[in-house]
Design a protein around this nucleic acid. Structure first.
Lengths: 265, 265
DNA sequence: ACAAAAGTGTTATGCGTACACCCATGG
DNA sequence: CCATGGGTGTACGCATAACACTTTTGT
């Protein structure tokens, strides 16, 4: 076989190997000072009882990105999603699904603090998992001690890559703002970095970097309103610059000991 | 539809939308001080006469990565490929191929200086194109003046993403060594950076960075043997550290004016 | 002798790091 | 009045950028 460039004229599409194409989603959020991911408990075989990334089939006339957005809305129950969604990579080893040949286009989503899973449309169980409670291959900062839940298919591999992607993206993009509300304090933004990287950052230097980086945040007139009591001076509120640049210069280098990146594609 | 997790037990695979899955390759090399990409002239409709990325169908029982390596060997005529191959992203808009629903998993390959295209296995025309002679969307440093060749399908979009990927990877990985021979001079290595980024680097500072970065290059005893005459002191030869790290610390920041990265996934 | 490219050294600027200190609020 | 978190300032050290200089070869 050569290339699609060379397909003969009078062909039948089914002469070519038929694949099923799915989208799988790593939906991340930051809550309670930790990076969380939304997983779904499988009801049926294969991998019944195991936890899996939410996802589903792509329709034959549907764009892949549209399918990912559709699944995201279905799983989170939110129609106006305020976060960020991007493609992660494609996983298509033969045998990864024992039933048929499936190629999965994985995505990562950065979600602001969402309510408890708004359980998916059907009866499955769904919940946020602390990423550090999962057994992910080749990731420092996780606990490979083997008492995490079983993950279905190759979803441990996908999720490890997804965590890597999120950690890397915070360095040189303004996407940390996708994890917080429309109005946020610089302390909240710093907590995002610390939760995702599993490190501590110097408050003063973080503030200087954020405020000195063009196209990242813009101050608002408002100030923090604290619902539950708690001491401390109320913080000023900021907003993400809407049409900001896609990359930040300079990037914020994460300190040694942060969650490892094996090789960021 | 929900997720593959929920597929019923007694199903027929053909009940699910059948996609054709292909791999497309951006095979880059550095020659004559410029970044080049291997393109193939299409013989048949659609896009007959247009230039396209090499690629082909994935077999139903074949790993996607294996298919990419297979196509790479076929197109370059090299069986022992010394460079680097990685997945770029997946492009699957309905209608991108007018004949059927095709999902293409694009890859980028970093190739050392290869002979003239060793023309593909069949009668098609194939050649290296200077990247700056192509009309790629959203890329600074190219010449969007519209006198480049017509590119088939969405290959201009894919190629733009591929150029971005290559430029970004040089910053924080040792993969620049994939563009040169097994033994190389630091001057040759610097030429790779300058060709890909379209900038000039300070020789002294580049040398200090390369030699001071752990796990990048290792000196050999040999010294440069110049085939064709040419003045100048013969350079010492270096080798890539085989089991070096996947990421370099610190990265080499490219100067302002280098080929733009819109958002490196 | 000259050109060309490799190799070495020097200096100043700027930025990241670390840390100290003040402000505002709740209990 | 004390604890807590927000906000600001500053001194130090090192990495980088810019540039000058020496060495080794071919013509």
């Amino acid at each position: 076989m050569t290339t699609d460039a060379q397909a003969p004229e009078g062909y039948d599409p089914h002469d070519y190997p038929p694949f099923a194409v799915t989208v799988d989603l790593c939906i991340f959020t930051v809550r309670d000072g930790a990076l969380k991911v939304l997983l779904i408990e499988r009801a049926d075989d294969p991998y019944a009882g195991a936890w899996a990334l939410p996802g589903g089939f792509v329709d034959i006339d549907e764009d892949i990105a549209d399918a990912a957005w559709r699944e995201l809305a279905e799983e989170t129950g939110v129609e106006q999603f305020a976060g960020h969604l991007e493609q992660l990579g494609t996983y298509g080893k033969p045998g990864r699904d024992p039933r048929m040949r499936v190629v999965s286009v994985a995505h990562v989503a950065f979600a602001p603090n969402l309510p408890e899973p708004t359980a998916g449309s059907d009866a499955r169980n769904a919940r946020w998992w602390d990423v550090s409670d999962l057994d992910l291959p080749g990731l420092t900062g996780g606990n490979d001690d083997g008492d995490g839940p079983e993950l279905a298919f190759d979803h441990a591999r996908i999720l490890a890559d997804g965590v890597d992607r999120v950690a890397a993206k915070l360095e040189y993009t303004p996407l940390a703002t996708a994890f917080v509300a429309e109005q946020f304090t610089l302390g909240e933004l710093q907590h995002v970095y610390e939760a995702v990287w599993g490190t501590h950052l110097d408050r003063s230097n973080f503030r200087r970097w954020v405020k000195g980086t063009e196209g990242f945040v813009r101050p608002t007139t408002g100030t923090e309103r604290r619902l539950t009591g708690g001491a401390g001076r109320p913080a000023a509120l900021y907003t993400a610059v809407g049409d900001g640049p896609k990359t930040l210069t300079p990037p914020l280098m994460r300190p040694e000991g942060a969650r490892t990146v094996k090789g960021t594609p």
